[in-house]
């Protein structure tokens, strides 16, 4: 009994240490966003000064807006193309299916920098797509599609395979069956793929760096450019704002999922 108690103390202390290691830097960032001290360690009094600066900094605000627009657009495109692709891949015979699944894994396994450079060289040669929004949306969409496919494929194997044929036998066109029969059943998996895509796009830095122009700057690229040189205090307020939003979204999704699974459990 005694040994067991000790074991518990040691395990929980270890977890606590890991949590401290994880959250200490973030906590300091958040705390120091409420003071305008130039560096950490000197507290020059509580103030919202950095937040005032943040909300008047056009460069930062447009970077945030750009990131969100890019993430939502690319994730949306990826979700549509990826879901249709998953339905198609699922009904393929062994060899074409293997081929598609293999291709699907290329960008997932590849290093970001290699994917980014391949895109860049391609866009340099195909000159009619100008660097900027178009190249960014294409590259981000292509990077996100595989994750949508991987989210939707497992769900397809749980569906009743006869529903699609039944829809067709009743005279509906393939598109109509897709929209009225398939997509409603896949909506949860699609949503998961969409959220994963949004995260991947927001987190991406390398692909954006190589496939944008100087005008379309995202949060990641903005941070990289600033951090290489030196740190402006206003970045602390910006980071805190992003942290709060991301945490709220992740917690919200988890709570929503839990509610839904609780409901399912109750009904069963």
């Amino acid at each position: 009994m005694k040994i067991k108690a000790w074991k518990k103390v040691i395990s929980y202390s270890f977890l606590a240490l890991i949590l401290i290691f994880t959250y200490l830097p973030i906590a300091v960032l958040v705390v120091y966003s409420f003071t305008d001290a130039r560096s950490i360690g000197v507290w020059t009094g509580f103030t919202f000064e950095l937040y005032a600066e943040l909300f008047s900094d056009q460069e930062i605000l447009s970077a945030i807006l750009n990131s969100v627009i890019l993430a939502v657009t690319s994730a949306g495109c990826a979700t549509i193309i990826g879901t249709f692709a998953a339905v198609g891949i699922y009904s393929m015979k062994r060899i074409p299916r293997k081929l598609m699944e293999g291709t699907n894994q290329i960008t997932m396994l590849n290093a970001d920098i290699v994917t980014a450079i391949a895109f860049m060289l391609f866009f340099l040669i195909v000159q009619f797509i100008p660097f900027g929004w178009a190249t960014l949306i294409i590259s981000h969409t292509m990077v996100c599609i595989p994750y949508v496919v991987m989210s939707v494929l497992p769900r397809l194997s749980q569906l009743n395979p006869n529903l699609y044929e039944a829809g067709q036998d009743l005279g509906a066109s393939p598109m109509r069956v897709m929209f009225t029969v398939m997509l409603p059943q896949l909506i949860t998996a699609m949503l998961a793929g969409f959220m994963l895509s949004v995260t991947i796009s927001l987190d991406d830095f390398v692909i954006t760096k190589f496939n944008s122009n100087s005008e379309v700057v995202t949060i990641s690229v903005y941070l990289y450019n600033k951090l290489k040189k030196g740190v402006k205090p206003v970045l602390r307020a910006m980071s805190t704002l992003i942290l709060v939003v991301v945490t709220a979204v992740v917690v919200g999704i988890n709570v929503g999922q839990k509610r839904r699974s609780d409901k399912v459990r109750k009904n069963v």
Partner: peptide, 28 residues
């Protein structure tokens, strides 16, 4: 016929993957 029509849903992605994944790697 229905199997074939279903497989066609993967066509847009197949084309995009060749153009934007395979060809760029070949160019590289």
């Amino acid at each position: 016929n229905s199997k074939l029509s279903k497989q066609m849903f993967a066509l847009p992605y197949a084309i995009l993957a060749v153009v934007f994944v395979i060809i760029p790697l070949v160019i590289m």
